[in-house]
Structure formats: C-alpha cells, structure tokens
C-alpha cells in the first residue's frame, strides 16, 4: 500500500502522455523525410496538419507538470521525472516543427527535377530518425546506456551535415539556374533541420541520463 496514490497515478499518466506525444513525433519526423524522398505531397501535408495536435499536447503536458509541482511538491526521482518531462516536451515540439519545415520544403520542390538523386539526405534522415526512436526507447526503459549511445551518434550526423553543406555550396557556385540554386538552398535547409532533430534527440538522451542518475551531462 503506497500513500499519495492520486499524485503518483497522475505522475504516471503524465509520463505515458509524454511517451504518446513522443511516438507521434517520431512518426511525423519519419513521415516528413519519406515525403521528401518520394516528393509525396499528401504525406507532407499530413505532417503539417498534425502539428496543431502536437502543439496542443505540448501545452497540456506543460500545464499538468506545473500543476503537479505547485500542488504536490515533488521530490527526488519524482522531481527529476517532472524536470525531464518539462524539458523533453520542448525538444519533442521543436522536432515536430523541424518535421513541418522539411514537409514545407517537400511542397516547395515537388514537381521539380531534382538537381541530384537524394542519397545523403535519406542516409542522414535514417540516422536522425533512429536517434529519435532510441532516445524515446531510452526514456521508456530508463536506459542510461542507450541514452548515452544515442548522444554518441550525434557526431556522425554533424559530419554528414558539414559534408552536405560543402557539396551543396559547390553546386550553387557552379550553377546559374535560379530554380536549381533555390532547390540546393532548400536541400541545405533540410540537412540543417535533420541536424537539429538529431540535436534534440541528443538532448533527450542527456535528460534520460539525468532522470536515471541525477547527473547533468552535456553529450554529443
């Protein structure tokens, strides 16, 4: 028999709600990169339409956290969980915004002839999506080792971003066609958004380390 049953039930419900939001964010991130790879306008639009739901979830989760802090004075692991939820919910919302940004690029370049076949961006996207997936799995399982492993993969994404940036700049320098130059700029932004998504996944990894160990770390 534990005491403060209602409080602990609400804490658990809040954690579940965050994971629900996380799984939806993971889906929109994956869908946004697929929409780009296949220039699928419907999928891109679907990502954009889902954003309102995710924004509302962020506000709701944040509100519930603040209420628990105000009314229940959480301590120890409960306090760390609430601090983690408050931070992670922001990372999730930003990732969803990045997915929307990528989907908007899909809408912009759909119908154009691609300047080059998309090879590196899907690779980078696959890495970023896997990082998001694993960061959330680490949060569910409170798996510190997995969280740290996610953060270590951030360097690979950063390196791919730097290489893509160089490549796209070179292409823009040697091209005079405005549509193709604009497309290169859009792809550069896409790479940037993917790099940001990986950064947010890294942040979640760091939060999981804090949740489990109480240690604040900067990884990735």
């Amino acid at each position: 028999m534990t005491s403060r049953q209602q409080y602990h039930d609400e804490l658990e419900a809040l954690h579940s709600r965050l994971l629900e939001m996380g799984s939806l964010v993971e889906k929109v991130v994956a869908r946004s990169v697929e929409s780009l790879a296949q220039l699928d306008v419907d999928a891109a639009q679907n990502v954009i339409d889902t954003d309102d739901t995710l924004d509302a979830m962020e506000m709701e989760i944040e509100q519930r956290c603040i209420r628990l802090i105000a009314l229940q004075q959480p301590m120890a692991a409960d306090l760390r969980l609430l601090a983690t939820i408050l931070k992670v919910v922001t990372d999730l919302e930003r990732m969803a915004d990045n997915a929307v940004n990528i989907s908007e690029i899909t809408l912009r370049i759909a119908g154009q002839q691609l300047v080059k076949p998309l090879v590196d961006i899907p690779k980078m996207a696959a890495l970023a999506v896997q990082m998001v997936h694993d960061a959330l799995a680490a949060l569910v399982q409170r798996d510190e080792a997995l969280a740290r492993a996610v953060c270590e993969r951030d360097d690979a994404v950063d390196d791919m971003y730097a290489a893509l940036f160089e490549e796209l700049v070179d292409m823009m320098k040697s091209d005079t066609d405005p549509i193709r130059v604009s497309q290169c700029a859009n792809l550069m932004f896409t790479a940037r958004f993917l790099e940001r998504i990986a950064d947010h996944a890294t942040n979640i990894g760091e939060r999981v380390v804090y949740l489990v160990s109480g240690e604040r770390v900067k990884l990735g």
Partner: peptide, 16 residues
C-alpha cells in the same frame, strides 16, 4: 531531495 542514495529515503520523501 534531488537524488537520494538510498531507496528507503526515496520512498519516504516521495510519499511511497
């Protein structure tokens, strides 16, 4: 209060 070392402390201060 942030990260106690003993599970019994944890249980007491979180009301479990």
């Amino acid at each position: 209060f942030e990260n106690p070392g003993d599970q019994r402390t944890e249980d007491y201060i979180t009301g479990r």
